[in-house]
Simulated scan of single mutants.
Amino acid sequence: MDSLLYDLPALTIRRISVSEMDNNVYLLTAKGSGEQVLIDAADDLPAIRQLLQDAAGDTPAPARLAVVATTHQHWDHVRALKELVAATGASTVAGTDDADALPVPVDRRLGQGDTVAVNGISLTAVHLHGHTPGSIAFVYEDPEGPTHIFSGDSLFPGGVGNTQKDPERFSLLLSDVTERLFGTYPDTAVVHPGHGKPTTLGAERPHLEEWRARGW
C-alpha cells in the first residue's frame, strides 16, 4: 500500500499504520532540503525505516530525519522512539508536561504556540489538555492549500480523545479542541488522528455541542 497521502508544493506527507493498535505514523519531507519530521514513532522500526526509504524519493536532496515529534506520552505512540532516535540521531520534541514520561530524553519541550521548524517545514504546536497533561497537536499551514492538523489522540472523527470518564478532563479537552483547533483553523483543515482515518474540522464542527452534551 502506498504511504503517500499528500504531494504538496513544498513537502510530502506520508502515513503508515503500525501495531495491533492501528497507530498512525506520519512523515513530512521537505522537497527542497530533504529535511524530515516524523510524528509519533509508535512501533515497528522496520516499517518506519521503509517509510523513510520511500520518502527519500520525494526530494532530489539527500533525505535526513531531523526531528521526531511525539504527540503524547502513551506507550502505544512511543514504542519505536528510542530505537529510531538511536539509529538516526534525530532530535526529539514533545509537550512539556509529557516529556518526562517518554523513553528518551526530550531535546525540546513544547508549549502552546511554539514552532517546530526545520529547513522547509514549520509546524505549530497546539497544547490540548485532557487526554494526557501534555498532549500536542502539530499543525502545518500550507500556503497553497488546506491546513493539516496532526491531532494525536485528542481529536478523531466523531469525538475527542479518551478522558477515562473524568468530567474535568473531558471539559478541558473539549474546551481546548474547540478554542485552539475549531476556533483557530478553517473548516477545510484536514485532521490526521493518531489512529484510524482522517477527517476535517468542517465535518466535525456541527457535532461539538452534541459531544459536550453526551460527555465524551
Rank of each mutant, 00 (worst) to 15 (best):
P62M: 13
P198A: 07
H207T: 03
P60H: 07
D22Q: 13
V18H: 06
V126Y: 00
R14A: 14
K165R: 15
K31N: 05
S33W: 05
A213H: 06
D187R: 02
G183A: 06
L4K: 15
T88L: 07
E144C: 12
G196V: 01
D76V: 13
Y140G: 07
N23Y: 09
Q53R: 15
Q53K: 15
A56R: 13
P143D: 06
L28Y: 12
V160S: 08
V190Q: 08
H148Q: 09
L5S: 15
F156P: 08
A55R: 13
G215T: 01
W75Q: 12
V78Q: 13
D76M: 14
A55D: 07
Q50A: 15
E209I: 00
N24I: 15
P186I: 08
V116Y: 03
P193Q: 08
S17C: 09
A101G: 07
A189L: 10
P167M: 09
P186H: 07
P46G: 13
A41H: 05
N162A: 00
V190W: 02
K31M: 01
V191Y: 02
T184K: 11
V190I: 14
R205A: 06
G215I: 00
R180M: 04
F150M: 11
D100K: 07
V160P: 10
G183I: 04
A42P: 15
K31L: 01
M21P: 04
Y26T: 07
P143V: 03
I136L: 03
R14P: 15
G196C: 00
V139L: 11
V85G: 03
L38G: 15
L84W: 08
G215A: 01
G120D: 01
W216T: 11
A66T: 14
L128R: 05
G111F: 05
I149R: 02
G111R: 14
G89V: 01
P46E: 06
N162F: 02
I149N: 06
D98F: 12
A101I: 00
Q73G: 08
P198K: 02
D107M: 05
A42L: 12
Y185W: 11
D114V: 11
T163E: 09
D97R: 14
V68T: 10
S171K: 12
I13M: 13
R109D: 01
T70W: 00
G152L: 02
A55T: 05
L27W: 03
G113L: 11
R79I: 00
T12S: 15
V18Y: 03
Y140Q: 05
N119S: 15
P46S: 11
Y140R: 04
S122Y: 03
R49Q: 15
S17G: 08
G57T: 06
D187V: 04
D43N: 10
A41G: 05
L52D: 01
L181C: 04
N23T: 11
D54F: 02
L8K: 04
D97V: 06
I149P: 11
E83C: 11
E35A: 12
P133Q: 09
V177E: 06
L4G: 12
I121F: 03
P143W: 01
P157F: 07
H131A: 09
A86R: 15
R169D: 09
L8E: 13
